[in-house]
């Protein structure tokens, strides 16, 4: 055929696809900023134990509430601990717990949503009403109950957060599945006699994956805020482990005369949340889910 050279785009390897997406994300200012902040936080979480200038739990009564100086960059807190050290270490637990929590949320929320969207009917009705019921319970109360019954260990926090933040993903995954399910290729797979599992795995997941991933990234930032709130209330990480939520809670009474001890963890937490949000936005735009930025024509 004469026209064969018209469509020359060939199948790309998965690695090339991912790097393409990252390049597209970084080509927008907001995406670039978001990605930089996120990468900065992730790197910091890995290397902070090695670069921390002081011991995070070293109490020094003679250095209580020192203002920022060349020696103590962010000052010291009410027990004389270095705020800089505690701030760069304070994101580690939050980041790890919420990352795995989001994965769990994605997994169960996504799969249940897709399943409900596919089978429909009574199963769908019943499951969705249960999800609605859970959505109406204030999550923080439920979390407090779980944590006070089972303790604040990582093994409790990760699945509990994953469960509460996965409810919203169920709805998104179900809606995304509904968009796909009416298409003829699903009808065609059904008419051929593929099993439900095969339809979900081969036909639906590749088409709803992007939407669910973006939603998952958004949930991650909310979960981070949620986890810090738990710490703030004293149900997250136990002292003396440095954690932003805990640090804010400890220092909030001293805000009027030792602002530094509360500002540093606040900046840490909010910059991470903003970073994740911007990245998720850029991710959605790079995948073409966000309609306003689709290519013309």
């Amino acid at each position: 055929m004469k026209l064969d050279n018209i469509y020359q785009e060939e199948k790309k390897s998965n690695f090339a696809k991912v790097s393409d997406i990252i390049v597209t994300m970084a080509s927008r200012p907001s995406g670039f900023i978001g990605l930089s902040i996120l990468i900065f936080h992730v790197i910091l979480a890995f290397i902070s134990p090695y670069i921390a200038p002081y011991d995070f739990k070293a109490i020094n009564p003679t250095l209580m509430l020192q203002a920022p100086s060349a020696e103590y960059w962010f000052g010291t807190d009410d027990l004389g601990r270095d705020v800089f050290t505690r701030t760069i270490l304070g994101g580690r637990t939050a980041l790890t717990i919420t990352f795995f929590g989001s994965l769990i949320a994605l997994l169960w929320g996504g799969l249940l949503g897709i399943f409900c969207g596919l089978v429909g009917g009574k199963t769908d009705d019943i499951v969705m009403r249960i999800v609605d019921a859970f959505l109406s319970i204030p999550w923080i109360l439920a979390m407090l109950l779980i944590v006070s019954l089972l303790g604040t260990s990582t093994e409790v926090l990760i699945p509990a957060l994953g469960f509460f933040y996965g409810k919203g993903i169920v709805r998104v995954a179900r809606a995304a599945t509904h968009d796909v399910i009416a298409k003829d290729f699903i009808v065609s797979a059904r008419a051929r006699g593929h099993s439900n599992f095969s339809i979900i795995w081969n036909e639906i997941i590749p088409n709803v994956r992007d939407a669910i991933l973006v939603e998952g990234a958004m949930r991650w930032s909310w979960m981070l805020l949620g986890f810090s709130s738990l710490s703030f209330l004293g149900f997250g990480v136990s002292p003396p482990t440095p954690d932003w939520g805990l640090m804010i809670s400890n220092a909030r009474g001293l805000m009027s005369f030792a602002y530094w001890s509360v500002i540093a963890p606040i900046v840490g937490l909010s910059s991470l949340i903003i970073g994740i949000n911007l990245t998720a936005d850029a991710f959605a735009k790079a995948l073409g889910i966000d309609r306003s930025t689709k290519a013309p024509v």
């Binding site: 199948k11 298409k183 003829d184 290729f185 009808v187 065609s188 008419a191 051929r192 006699g193 081969n202 036909e203 590749p206 088409n207």
Partner: peptide, 20 residues
């Protein structure tokens, strides 16, 4: 199921966009 196959009106919808 094998003996009866379908071809649809709109190939945009009948082919999974994420499959080669």
């Amino acid at each position: 199921l094998r003996i009866i196959q379908l071809i649809f009106q709109n190939p945009d919808e009948s082919l999974n966009p994420n499959h080669t």
